[in-house]
Amino acid sequence: MMIFLMDLWDSVRGFIATGGDVLLLVAFVLFLMWTLMLERYFFLNNVFPKLRDDMIANWNSREETTSWHAHRIREAWISQAKQQLNARMLIVKTLVAICPMIGLLGTVTGMINVFDVMSVQGTSNARLMAAGISTATMPTMAGMVAALSGVFFSTRLDARLKISIEKLTDSLAHKE
């Protein structure tokens, strides 16, 4: 097991060395994005059901649910639940959108390395130019993979949040 972890760590270090320092930024943004998404999944599955049940119990215990005042209370509770569910989702979506841009930053820095090598060594040293091209392509690939994983899971999470709000709204029955 320890040898496997050491080999894995060596592979990660080699990947980062191949792609340059921008890969560290991609890794940080990816870690932050997934931390926030996992927190939202935890909230949705573990915390929100209790809040929802308490809200439904409070609504059902009301004697009067048909007045204008009762409707405004219902709307306020639904709005609070929606706000709690959607907390930090804008940050997640922003991080998803930033990932490809950080990858492009890696492309730019890698191409600057290629042009730097060409200006110093000339165009005859293909090995040094290949290192710069690798530095240009690795962050782009990593940024796109990070963004794709974020798009897929944040879209699923967003749909589940909307369904939870709709179910809560349906559970707080009111009469016109």
Results as ranks from 00 to 15, higher is better:
I3C: 02
F4Q: 05
D10W: 06
V12T: 10
G14D: 14
A17C: 03
L24C: 11
F28M: 15
V29Q: 04
F31K: 00
M33V: 01
W34F: 15
T35S: 11
Y41M: 11
L44V: 03
N45K: 13
P49N: 09
P49Q: 12
K50T: 12
L51M: 12
M55Q: 06
A57M: 04
A57W: 01
N58W: 03
N60D: 15
N60K: 15
E63K: 13
E64Q: 14
T65I: 14
W68T: 12
R74A: 06
A76C: 06
S79P: 01
S79M: 10
Q80I: 10
A81F: 12
K82G: 07
Q83N: 11
L90W: 11
I91T: 15
L95A: 01
V96I: 13
C99V: 00
P100G: 09
G103D: 09
G103Q: 04
L104Q: 09
L104D: 12
L104T: 06
T107M: 09
V108H: 07
T109G: 01
G110W: 07
F115L: 02
F115I: 01
S119M: 00
V120S: 10
Q121W: 04
G122D: 06
G122P: 08
A126G: 04
R127Q: 14
I133A: 12
A136F: 06
A136P: 02
T137D: 03
T137W: 08
P139R: 06
T140K: 01
M141E: 03
M141K: 06
G143I: 05
L148R: 05
F152S: 02
E166P: 00
K167S: 12
T169Q: 15
E176L: 13
E176D: 15
